[in-house]
Structures are given as C-alpha cells and as structure tokens.
C-alpha cells in the first residue's frame, strides 16, 4: 500500500459522535500502511466542535470543520462540495465513509465528482501480492465475497457497520483544527428530521432490524410465545417466526422469516425452537451471527449456527433475557 493520508468523512448529530464514526476510524487504522500515515477527518454540520477531542483521542491528526447552523438543513450536495474541497486540498490516498444512508449518499456523489471508484459495504481491507490496496465486500445476498481494487486516487470506500472495531482511545491526544466554509444549495433542503431513539414500544420490522429473535415449533404452543417477546424486548429486536409457527396461527404472517423470497440479514439472529429446514436457513444465510437454541442436538440448525445451546426453551430464554437486561442494551445508534 503506498503511503498517503486517509480522510474520514464523518457526521454527528447534536454534538455527539455515533459509534459508526468511530468504526470508520477503526477501519482507517486497518487501512493505513504505516503508523505515520496521517488520518484526517471532515465534519459538516451544526454543533460539531464538541467532538474534536474525541476524534483526536481516536487517532485523527487533523480535523476539517464546516460548522454552521444552516448546515443542519443542507442536503447531500453541500456535504459533497465540502468534502471535495478538502480532498483537493490535502489529496488523501483514501477516503472512508460509514456505509449508512449518509455515507452512501456522499460517497456516490463524490465518486462521480472525482471520477474515481467507490467500493461500498467493505468488510475488510488488504492488499494484492504487489501491494495494491484491496477491499472485500459481500454480494448476491451475502452468498459471495468479492475483492476489488481501485484504478485511481483517491480510493473511495464505505465501511460496513458493526464489523470494524473502535480504535483505542488516547485521551489527551491532539489534532489540528481547520475551519472551512461552503456555500449552500438553494435547490434542496431538509425540512424536518425525526429520530426514533427512545421511541418506545414499536418493534422493528424483521427485514430492517439489526437483531432478530425467531420462534419455531419448539415452543410447543402459542401460550409460550411470551418468552420470545421478553427476549426481543431485552434486545430491541424484531420477532421472527418459522413458517410452521405462522401456519399454526401462533404469530401473524409479517413475522415469517425466509422463503417469501428475500432473506433477512440481521447482524444477530437467534433461532429458538427452530429445527432449521433448508428453506428457513435460506432466509437467514446472510445473517451475521446465528445463535441456535433447540432441545434436539441433531437439529439441522446447529449445522449453520455460530453458537448453539441444547436445551429447553423455557429454561434458557428467561435467564438469557435477564442477562441481557443486566447491562441495558441501547437502541441501534445513529449510523451516520
């Protein structure tokens, strides 16, 4: 990998830096060739100064700030112009963004603006035998992994969330601060923003959720399903179901996992009392981590799970929910 700085494009909301931003910095650490390659960060928005120290502590050497209240109402084009200006100024070798709505928006426009390639959803970085940087990403519903390289500079990449760790914090580390300005775009503006954090009872939809807990026939009857609901509450998860459970009328059709065509791809999938018929498994093949809980040690689901517990649902689920509740697990954070 040739030397050259890395620029991380981050965003924060209300003066707080989301975990996603720190993961981008973690990815930057993995990507840089030598400890002396510099890492810069660019932030565009209102109320962004409070996070500078956090950035510095996590390895950022210089921060480029575009800070203005009006920027809270700006759409992608303005952010792209700001980032492009920094790119022109510091000429980084790589530009990293989170693989979030924001990150993909900015990265794709940037790619067209700069005329260089963008790899989205990268899960790791490496190099060819001759030292050319490579990124790995999953394709076709997670069934295949492709390795890609870039033809030109800067190399653009969005970093899949929940994969790269957060770098160690060195409190007291310093970063240089550069303030910049960018003009607004009258053609587009953000009218309103509603967040869902702390928004109470609604469970996420199974296809969108980060965590899915699914119930199968191993529950034995509809009356026992409260166990899965308690587990879902402890995790902030969506509740899924095997087809048999829906056919038996224990849960409604919208909970059914798999087979209707598109798979669910949560980071974490906990299958409770599900034997693991291949059609169900086809629906969860892209799940990050699969946990199986079943009384039958020979159940096919243990063939694909990462973690397995052989036991009775009634005996495992309550202590599991309790252990999860002990340190409260927050809702999925802003992925910006």
């Amino acid at each position: 990998m040739s030397g050259g700085g890395i620029l991380g494009v981050l965003s924060c909301r209300a003066g707080r830096l989301p975990r996603a931003a720190l993961e981008v910095l973690g990815a930057a650490q993995q990507l840089r060739s030598t400890a002396s390659s510099s890492i810069a960060a660019v932030l565009v928005g209102a109320e962004v100064s409070p996070v500078i120290d956090t950035l510095a502590a996590h390895g950022v050497d210089s921060v480029y700030l575009f800070e203005d209240d009006a920027l809270a109402r700006c759409t992608t084009e303005v952010h792209v112009r700001a980032v492009a200006a920094v790119v022109a100024e510091i000429r980084p070798a790589c530009v990293l963004l989170p693989d979030s709505a924001y990150g993909r928006d900015v990265a794709s426009r940037l790619s067209a603006r700069l005329g260089t390639g963008l790899a989205t959803g990268c899960v790791s970085f490496g190099a060819t035998a001759s030292g050319e940087p490579l990124a790995e990403r999953t394709v076709f519903g997670g069934r295949f992994v492709e390795r890609v390289s870039w033809a030109g500079l800067p190399r653009l990449a969005t970093v899949k969330l929940g994969i790269f760790g957060v770098p160690h914090a060195e409190p007291g580390r310093r970063a240089t601060l550069q303030r910049r300005e960018v003009a607004r775009d009258a053609r587009a503006n953000v009218l309103s923003v509603e967040h869902s954090e702390g928004s109470g009872s609604a469970r996420p939809d199974i296809e969108e959720a980060r965590v899915v807990v699914a119930a199968g026939r191993g529950f034995g009857s509809a009356e026992k399903l409260h166990l899965i609901e308690e587990l879902a509450d402890a995790l902030g998860a969506a509740v899924g179901a095997s087809r048999a459970v829906v056919d038996l009328g224990w849960l409604e059709h919208q909970h059914q996992v798999g087979q209707t065509g598109r798979s669910v791809a949560p980071d974490l999938y906990i299958a409770c009392g599900i034997s693991g018929a291949i059609q169900h498994l086809a629906g969860i093949s892209s799940a990050g981590t699969i946990v199986a809980i079943n009384r039958d040690p020979e159940a096919p689901i243990f063939g694909v799970a990462d973690y397995g517990i052989v036991g009775e649902i009634e005996e495992i689920l309550p202590p599991l929910a309790a252990a999860l509740r002990e340190r409260p697990v927050g809702r999925p954070e802003a992925g910006e």
């Binding site: 790899a119 069934r143 890609v148 397995g308 036991g311 202590p319 309790a322």
Partner: peptide, 29 residues
C-alpha cells in the same frame, strides 16, 4: 473501470459451531 473485481468466491462457510455447555443460567451468561 475505476473499480475492478479481482476475485469472487463463495462466502466462507461459517466456522464450526461453538456449543455452550452448562446449566441454563451458565449457558445464558
């Protein structure tokens, strides 16, 4: 192309399952 595919393979099979033993409380923790 600005982005080139170097290689495409099937996703690696998941590693061996890690079975968690013990009584239910221990397993949960």
């Amino acid at each position: 192309p600005q982005l080139r595919r170097e290689h495409l393979v099937a996703s690696p099979r998941r590693g061996a399952i890690r079975r968690i033993a013990g009584d239910p409380d221990a397993q949960a923790r």
